[in-house]
Amino acid sequence: MNLLLEARGLHLKFGAIAALDDVAIDVSAGEVVAIVGESGSGKTTLLRVLAGQMAPDSGTVRYLGGDVLGMTEAERRRLMRTDWGFVHQNPRDGLRMGVSAGGNVGERLMALGARHYGNIRDEAKAWLQRVEIDAARIDDLPRHFSGGMQQRLQIARTLVTRPKLVFMDEPTGGLDVSVQARLLDLIRALVHELGLSVLIVTHDIAAARLLADRILVMRRGQVVEQGLTDRVLDDPQHPYTQLLVSSVLAA
């Protein structure tokens, strides 16, 4: 397996609270890894540390062998607009609300040097269709879109430059259940088509089951269990995982 991301011995304390307590994680090429846990488990902190947005107290994060934590801001940003993508829980954090849908999708292309308006626009239209947004809405502002559409637009904007590794922070978080299901299906189809590697943080066990090849269960800053998705969810070993899985069944 071609290892993309590799973290070892991550520690991070917020005051007396250990947000990360000796966490290790690997993501291989083409693999979808879900980090599940309740709020406060440290899963979002872990995502931010792995994406180089936050420094741990100790530990290492390597991307294709390169030291993520030692990167300059310039190197990190370059990675963020080439190899990496980040999908935020709130589409407002990932979109430019004052810029048209086409401009939002085209921004990463332009940041990478695309200078042909017609081509940028064609690419934006193709991506809108790909995320099931009517291409006729290419000049509309995202603020006139529904929450689900905004999230799909954020995904198009992120994937347009074909990143290798996409970080997703509760991508279905703020949406209605019916909208969530459609979005999960879309993400699953795109991940498969593009062969993406994804690191997804979610409190939603059903979403993890649908998308992930592997699952890490976090509690109080520690990874309490990890393994192939079916194994972890069908035969949970740790009492906390058993509790998480049973609460889904009860719901």
Partner: peptide, 22 residues
């Protein structure tokens, strides 16, 4: 300042794109 330091000028082209689109 960061945008200038990194010559990360995609945003300016977005503005020009928006003009042409509208």
């Amino acid at each position: 300042r960061r945008i200038h330091a990194l010559a990360d000028y995609g945003l300016m082209h977005v503005r020009l794109y928006e003009d042409i689109a509208r």
